[in-house]
Amino acid sequence: MAEWLSDPWQYEFMQRALWAGLLVSIAGAVVGAFVVVKGLAFMSDAVAHSSLAGAAVAFVTGGGSLAINIGAVIAAVMTAVSVSTLSRTARLREDTAIGLLFAAFFGFAILLISRSRSFALDLNSFIVGNILGVTTEDLWLMGALTVIVLALTLFFYRELLFTSYDPVMAAASGVPVTLVHMGLLTLVALAAVIAFRLVGVVLVMAMLVAPAATAGLLVRRMPMIMLIGTGVGVLSTVVGLYSSFYFDVAAGPAIVMTAIVAFVLAYLLSGRGLAIPRRLATAVSG
């Protein structure tokens, strides 16, 4: 049994995968807590998909791993800022703006990739992630981005919390709410770029939403949601990596499915699964 447990970690690629999972779990839960309470899931998804455009541009112009990641960050931040700007100036609903930019960036990325035969091989790892192929260089980059996310969140925590909770009152108190909102979307973009190496652009949303939503069922304070969410993320990574190692399934989806199972368990354990029929009964009886 002990061997069964320790075997996978003899391989360096598994160790790197675990480190990557830890970083994704931290950034995912910290930013994810805001994504969940503010309803930014669709936004996160769009940002993750758009990041592919920047990665593709970097790749086509001959950039290496670092350039590809920086390209992804730039495209993701551009999407986040454009959504915020477009929804305010063109008087569009935010989710319409997200839909448009999502399509524009992702379409552009696929267009570029379709021109380049060699990138097609890498496309797969972008779409579904390639956690077992994470290099040390990738890890350093993910680590740096995670530190940036944590530092920004910690420094502007009060503004982020106030703006998320009550934007009207926050504005009245002198919080630059538009700037803070754009900043939050930028954090989402950074977290998405950190996460897409792990699970791929398609499933990034899962790492931002599932652990924080799970934590949100169990605890009712933002810092606790971030902490428990990180734990859920790490647990999902470990279970997902074991599954991948022993059952020969793709690691990214295995991690995501574990996180979803954690959510379902939390839902049942928190008593909300039972509370809903009860609440309905009270509502009916008046």
Partner: peptide
């Protein structure tokens, strides 16, 4: 105008 579901004390 206030989000009462928000996880704050």
């Amino acid at each position: 105008e206030v989000d009462w579901d928000f996880p704050v004390s």
